[in-house]
Amino acid sequence: MSLDILASDNAVVGGRNAVELLRQERFENVTDVLVDMSALSIGTSFPILRYLLEAAGQAGGPRNVHALVVSVPAVDERRRRVSNDVVSLVHSFHGTLRLHSQQESARLWIPQLSVPKMAALDRIHAAVPFDDVCPILPFPSKNPRAADHVAEHFLEQLERTWDVDARNVIHAAEDDPIDVYRTILDIEEQRRTVFEDRSVVVLSPVGTKAVALGSLMAALERDLPVVYVEALQYDAPPKELQVPADAELLHVWLHGDAYRPHAPRVTP
């Protein structure tokens, strides 16, 4: 099946179209759905997973929902892309960000810093008025200097244009989605005790897929808005897109037998 990510005017429609395609599928006899997020943008993979999780909770839905991703941060950081010039909310991940009746909410932005996505992140920052910024740097990571490398490229943003308090920097493991998931939930929990329901945490997991997966889990759990800029195309020669043989496959079992009490064993 084919899927249009962009409309003729470059509007982002991939997420909505993906959900429409899935609605035509039947899952009654399906035990496991595995979504490989590796080559999908978050604009497409996030709504797919949301739909499947909501379907899994109802009769006729799949029994188990899994998310898979091949995480190669070094390759992700090298991949050049041509960005759209419109800031978008991922389909169905709007939260209450754009409700004008709740404009007084304090907005905290948690962007995952990624050098190829710098222009996109600048565009997001210019488009949405944030009160605070807590950028995510990769640590621990395979390359122990990865966080320094990224921070160095974002020095102007961190120190000047985004005005980031140095205490607000988040270090999240580059290959462990659970780490960033827990960190985001902790932050959101702490803010709720201070701001009650007048705080919005906004995610922009535009870097490595592992962090994107953790951000997805947090966004689903707390109905957090996810803001990004869709890529129009990737500008890398084919050999740069090849996955190395030793790349790690991450798997998160999002819903199903693993969480049911006294669930029967599932034979592989």
Binding site: N10, V82, S83, N84, D85, M118, A120
Partner: peptide, 8 residues
């Protein structure tokens, strides 16, 4: 630094 459609 420009990053927009058809920038290249």
């Amino acid at each position: 630094k420009y990053d927009y459609p058809y920038a290249r």
